[in-house]
Structure formats: C-alpha cells, structure tokens
C-alpha cells in the first residue's frame, strides 16, 4: 500500500450529505474483477450526461458542466471535502479504489460511514473527520478562493489552511501507523499466527459447534 504522510493539495468541494458508495461508483462497474481502472467512472452518474458502462472510453463522453469535478478550477484536486455521513451504504471497496485511481488521497467530512472509513485506510486514503463548523468554514474558503489548497499532516494530525488556521483531527494509532508506513496489515497479523492458533485451540474446546 502507498504510504500517506503529508499532503499539500488542491481542494474540491462536494456539497452533499450522505454521499453513498453507489454514487461514488455505480454497480455496473462492480463487475470488474480488478482493483484498478475505476477512476474514469468515479461519480459516473454525477459526472457524465450519459450512462457509463464498464470498459467505456470516457475521454469523449459528455460531461455535466455543473458537477464540481468537471470544473476547470478543481482539476488536479487531491483533497475532497463533503458533508456528513460520507461513504454510506454498500461495503464496496471499489469506492476508495475509484477515488484513489482518480487521484483523491484525502477526504474531509464531519462524519464517515464505518465500513467506507475503514476501507480508505486499506488503500492509502486518509479520511479526516472535522467538526461540521470547521468543514463549513472549509467549504466557504474553497468556494471563495480559486486554487485553494490545504496541508494535511498525518504524523501531526493536523489540517492547515492557507491563512495558517490549524485544525487537529483524531485517528487511531494503529491505522495511523499503517498508513504512514504503507504497511500490509495481513503481514503484520500473520506475525501473530502463534497467538491466533492458540486462541483457535481454546475456542474450539469451548465452542466446538462452531467448527
């Protein structure tokens, strides 16, 4: 997994609450058996006038001019800000795969859905939870300033605005450690194989009907 340490990136504002994973990557793209190639179809229904199908060349598809990701000023954005409960719905990891493939490395919202939040960390994407007021402020600053960038520092757990306002955010120590170092957590867990085997032995004794 690619590590995430610090990022100074252009911000794109997606002013919606309850953005679901069906919206992030529609079901027809879930038929792929790969982890890559979802970027062109990110937010497919919101981004394009027509309906996308897997494998479609997106370069000439008609785009919806009113959708933020299509606007000139947000091209190259790496940080996406949104309203509460971002990533709700389906557990599809294709959602973070699509965000990553598109070039989004950091998400900022007042809250995230659990499964999506977890999936982000497995794919080198940092989801940052700030208060609704802080996110609101970021929305108005982003809307007002073309080329608005934020600096996200994972080791320090801070988001810094161009004017120097610093917001601190919380993140679990384990997730932080894995993301900063780009660690494969399966490898880490397998280092504890002995513990797992010992637990499994006892568990089988106390609840043999599970085995």
């Amino acid at each position: 997994m690619k590590p995430f340490k610090t990022l100074q990136g252009l911000v794109v504002p997606l002013d919606r609450a309850n953005v679901d994973t069906d919206a992030i990557i529609p079901k027809q793209f879930l038929k792929s058996i790969k982890r890559t190639g979802y970027g062109p179809y990110l937010f497919d229904r919101l981004r394009y006038e027509d309906v996308g199908e897997p494998g479609m060349d997106c370069s000439n598809r008609p785009k919806r001019a009113d959708f933020v990701l299509n606007q000139e000023r947000y091209q190259g954005a790496e940080i996406l800000i949104a309203r509460e409960n971002f990533g709700c719905g389906s557990s599809r990891e294709h959602a973070p795969w699509a965000l990553d493939d598109f070039g989004i490395s950091c998400l900022i919202a007042p809250s995230f859905a659990d499964i999506f939040y977890n999936n982000c960390f497995k794919n080198g994407i940092l989801p940052v939870t700030l208060s609704a007021e802080q996110v609101d402020m970021l929305f108005s600053e982003t809307n007002n300033v073309v080329g608005y960038k934020l600096t996200v520092d994972l080791p320090a757990q801070t988001v810094t605005t161009p004017s120097g306002t610093v917001f601190r955010f919380e993140v679990d120590a384990f997730r932080k450690h894995c993301l900063i170092n780009g660690l494969d957590d399966i490898g880490l867990t397998l280092q504890q194989s002995g513990l797992i085997q010992a637990f499994e032995g006892k568990h089988k004794e106390s609840a043999p009907w599970f085995f």
Partner: peptide, 15 residues
C-alpha cells in the same frame, strides 16, 4: 460487513 481488503485479511488470518 467488510471491504475486500478485509475479506482478504480474514481469508489469510481468520481475524
């Protein structure tokens, strides 16, 4: 419910 990375994690480690 879990994502695909966790599906792989559970397949490989049962945890």
């Amino acid at each position: 419910g879990i994502g695909t990375s966790e599906v792989e994690h559970v397949l490989a480690t049962q945890c």
